[in-house]
Design a protein around this nucleic acid. Structure first.
Lengths: 171, 171
DNA sequence: CACTCTGTTCAAAAAAGTTTGAACAACCGC
DNA sequence: GCGGTTGTTCAAACTTTTTTGAACAGAGTG
């Protein structure tokens, strides 16, 4: 049973129209600021402006990117919670749609991209603090303690600001 | 008159000790998260842990980076407000010291790296919104209006969150 | 002015990061 | 199980970014 409803953007249209291109460009720039690769922005941007969910093949065809890129890009977007599989496709292939709540996007980015670095940073700094205790020269040790203490304060501030960020951006 | 007080880290010490290396590594990781080049982290990290201001040549010697890198790195750090020229050097060469108030660092980063992108994003989206008005298909136009409106909300949220961020991180 | 010292510039080299595409795995229907 | 379809993997190609270093500019000194 192969009844595919015409997926507008998906099924037929072989190229993006200028407006769609513009939207994709905005997202490409957007993700660059966040340090994510171009293809992530292209994929999310296209999903964002599509009225229907799109399949991996749609993305390959419309964005002129390789299957590999599309696959990896979708994986990352899924892990960020920025994209989900559309429900109810009776078809074999899976269709994707964007998550469009800012709260969700920010949350995913923080969880996947920020927290891990923050945590590894914190543990490195703890080790640092221990090692600084061992320094013989007491003047130097005092100075190091002061600076490393400041680092710890920074980390703690950053940690506290994240939930706040999420709260504020969730409206 | 060439009376140079021995600049501890600066004058003599030919290599970083393990602790200094560790601190530098922390900052290298830190700036990578922010999408800044490694050398920026090395330079700032070394200044951060040095008890005395350091000159460009000190940085070259201690970090084993080229003069070009050090020069460009210092330029960027100055533009970010993360580093300033130390006062009172009667010497010809200029010495640098780090700004260590988180407020200042965050402020500089936002001003130099975030705001410009945010602003260019906003103007791109305005153009987008105009173009979307021109679309003939009214159903499509409506959808585009909704999505682009959401984009505008995102932008506005981001704009509002920045000053807040600065306030919170300023203690 | 000639010389030295400090720092900047920028084209080319190196490094880092991204994308590609062919091979492969997994699944489905027949 | 076979043939077709969908999606993943990963080494190699490609792109972008960063670093290097040699040439140069400027400023101080004698």
């Amino acid at each position: 049973m192969i009844c595919h409803m015409p997926h507008l953007l998906a099924g037929d249209q072989p190229e993006l129209d200028p407006l769609e291109r513009q939207v994709v460009a905005v997202f490409v720039d957007g993700v660059k600021v966040l340090g994510l690769p171009r293809s992530i922005g292209e994929i999310y941007g296209l999903l964002f402006i599509s009225q229907t969910p799109l399949s991996l093949d749609d993305l390959v065809r419309l964005l002129h990117i390789s299957k590999g890129s599309a696959s990896q890009g979708l994986r990352m977007l899924k892990s960020l919670g920025a994209v989900r599989e559309a429900e109810g496709g009776a078809e074999r292939r899976t269709y994707y749609e964007p998550a469009i709540e800012l709260k969700r996007l920010v949350g995913g980015f923080i969880r996947e991209q920020v927290r891990p670095h923050l945590d590894s940073g914190k543990s490195k700094i703890s080790r640092l603090a221990e090692n600084a205790q061992e320094i013989d020269d007491s003047k130097r040790r005092e100075f190091l303690g002061e600076r490393i203490g400041r680092l710890e304060t920074w980390m703690s501030s950053s940690g506290k600001v994240l939930p706040l960020l999420q709260k504020i951006l969730g409206q």
